[in-house]
C-alpha cells in the first residue's frame, strides 16, 4: 500500500481572495514582511497498490478527472511508502 499526496495550488494570475484575506489578517498581527500569500490545498490518498509508478499514474488520472480544475489550478503528486 502506498500513500499519495496531491498538492493543489492556484495558477499565477488567478485571483485568490482567501489568500489575500489571510495576508491581511497576518499583517494586522504585525507580520509586515509578507509579500504575497496564495492558498492551496492538499489531498491524501491511500491506495491498494504497491507499484509506485502505477500508483502515481492512477492518481494523475484522478487529478485530471475530478480533483483538479486545470483552468485555474496546478498540481503536484508525491508518493510515499
Amino acid at each position: 500500500m502506498v500513500k499519495a499526496i496531491v498538492y493543489i495550488s492556484l495558477k499565477n494570475g488567478v485571483l485568490d481572495p482567501e489568500g489575500k484575506a489571510i495576508q491581511n489578517a497576518l499583517t494586522n498581527f504585525g507580520f509586515q514582511e509578507i509579500n504575497e500569500i496564495r492558498k492551496g490545498k492538499f489531498i491524501e490518498i491511500e491506495l491498494n497498490e504497491n507499484n509506485k509508478l502505477k500508483a502515481k499514474d492512477k492518481v494523475d488520472k484522478m487529478c485530471r478527472k475530478l480533483l483538479v480544475n486545470t483552468v485555474i489550478e496546478n498540481y503536484n503528486i508525491e508518493i510515499i511508502d
Binding site: V14, L15, P17, E18, A21, N69, V71, I72
Partner: peptide, 8 residues
C-alpha cells in the same frame, strides 16, 4: 470556472 467572490 466560477471562483469565490472577490470580497469573500
Amino acid at each position: 470556472i466560477l471562483l469565490p467572490n472577490k470580497n469573500l
